[in-house]
Amino acid sequence: MANIVSSATIRHLRGSAQKARLVVDLIRGKKVGEAQWILTSTKKYAAAPIKKLLNSAIANAVDKDPAVNPDELMVKTVFVDEGFRMKRVRPAPMGRAYRVQKRTCHITLQLAAITAGEE
Score class of each variant (00 low, 15 high):
T42E: 09
A35H: 01
S16F: 03
P91Y: 09
T108D: 01
G117R: 10
G29R: 07
Y98D: 10
R90V: 14
R96P: 07
A113I: 06
V68D: 06
G95W: 10
S41E: 10
I10H: 04
A97L: 07
E34Y: 04
V32P: 01
V75F: 04
V62C: 00
E119F: 04
A112N: 06
V62H: 00
T77Y: 09
L73A: 07
S41F: 12
T77E: 15
N69I: 01
V78Q: 03
A47P: 08
P66E: 11
A2P: 15
G15Y: 09
S6N: 09
G117A: 15
S56W: 00
K87T: 15
H106G: 04
V24R: 04
L26C: 03
K31W: 00
P66Y: 09
L22A: 06
R21C: 03
N69R: 06
R14Q: 07
E82K: 13
F79R: 11
T115G: 13
Q101H: 14
V24Q: 05
L22E: 13
D71M: 08
V23C: 03
G95V: 10
K31I: 02
A2I: 05
E119I: 10
E118M: 14
V80Y: 00
A8E: 04
A48V: 15
V24A: 15
D81C: 06
V32T: 10
T40N: 14
C105A: 13
V32A: 05
I107Y: 07
E118R: 08
D25H: 02
R103F: 05
T77P: 01
S7F: 08
N3K: 14
L39W: 08
L54K: 03
I107R: 06
G33I: 01
R90F: 08
I4C: 01
V23D: 01
N69D: 15
I27M: 05
K31T: 11
P91K: 12
G15V: 08
N3Y: 10
N3A: 13
A35Q: 03
Y98Q: 11
V80H: 01
R96W: 06
W37E: 12
A48K: 14
M1F: 10
R85K: 15
H106D: 10
A61Y: 00
N60K: 07
P93I: 09
I107P: 04
A92P: 02
A116V: 11
I38M: 08
I38L: 13
T40D: 15
H106R: 08
A46L: 09
V5P: 01
A8Y: 01
V80I: 01
R21K: 12
I58E: 01
A112L: 07
A116D: 15
A8W: 02
N3E: 15
V78F: 04
I4N: 04
R103S: 09
E119A: 11
K44F: 11
G29L: 07
T42P: 05
A67S: 15
A35T: 05
P70G: 05
S16D: 02
